[in-house]
Design a binder for these strands. Structure first.
Lengths: 158, 158
DNA sequence: GTTGAAAAGTAGCCTGA
DNA sequence: TCAGGCTACTTTTCAAC
């Protein structure tokens, strides 16, 4: 049983989000054709989903290699004492190479996902991260190949 | 020195991609105002970037929690012998909970990033992955908090 | 880059559950 | 009352030049 919170998405909202996930530039009329709603009705729902914060924005999906990002890695950070997440966030946010960063359970404190032009560039990023005052040591794992990469999507109907 | 391959992005393409990354539903006229190009000129460049495969598509950025994805984890897979990436990809692709998966260097073979409704759901996903014929064992790391999450963007000018 | 026709976005108004 | 359809007006797209 899913705890139906107030503000939960109805099935039509979910369908709209799936369409937008597949093509964020689809017209409201085209989306409406799929979900059986008029274009203005779709627009009103999308506007409301933006207001509610469910929709955070729209982006383009790019080929990282074409942008010059040839190398990808997970850099795990072991941090000193009790470094606050705010401190970690502020530090990691300054790196344009960082794609994602998360605090995690286990012996590692932070997992940082990084894209670099090449191994030399990656090495520099690792060294800079390792030199951050709150970082005790790092452990890096190079990505060999991306098997799957998907946007977040509403869960399939249960 | 960057090896200027034929087909490399020029600075205007990069600026256009940065605009689209920030708002994929921006009008060509608005993008043109930023990059000092007419709307049709921007459209032609975007069309060409799609043809070249630099632009793979457009998506919506959603709040995972609002979709019912409350739990996130890295599940590391240790695989038997020489399992082909194709096999791994096919297996992992069947899980709607999988957001990303990569083969990696080191003792682990695959890192799978997963979103689940809750811990119980996550546990089920781990068990199903562990039961895949090519998986010897798994190791899971729960995400406590997302510090940074960014779309791929052209590198800043060097 | 400019032009103009066709398509899409958008606000207001009306209707029915 | 609230969400959706309809209509009319504006903005954007997009192909030809």
């Amino acid at each position: 049983m899913t705890p139906t919170r107030p503000g939960d998405l109805d099935p039509i909202d979910e369908a709209i989000l799936r369409e937008l996930a597949a093509d964020a530039r689809a017209s409201y009329a085209d989306i409406g054709a799929v979900v059986a709603l008029s274009a203005p009705a779709v627009k009103r729902r999308v506007d409301r989903l933006r207001e509610r914060g469910v929709v955070r924005g729209f982006t383009v999906l790019l080929d990282p290699a074409a942008l010059g990002w040839e190398t990808e890695a997970f850099i795990e950070l072991f941090c000193h004492g009790s470094t606050s997440p705010a401190t970690m966030r502020a530090a990691v946010d300054r790196y344009p190479e960082v794609v994602a960063a998360s605090t995690v359970t286990g012996d590692v404190d932070v997992v940082v996902q990084v894209r670099a032009r090449d191994m030399r560039h990656l090495e520099q990023v690792v060294e800079r991260l390792a030199a951050e005052p709150f970082v005790a040591r790092t452990r890096s794992t190079i990505v060999l190949s991306a098997l799957v990469r998907r946007p977040d999507v509403p869960p399939p109907a249960p």
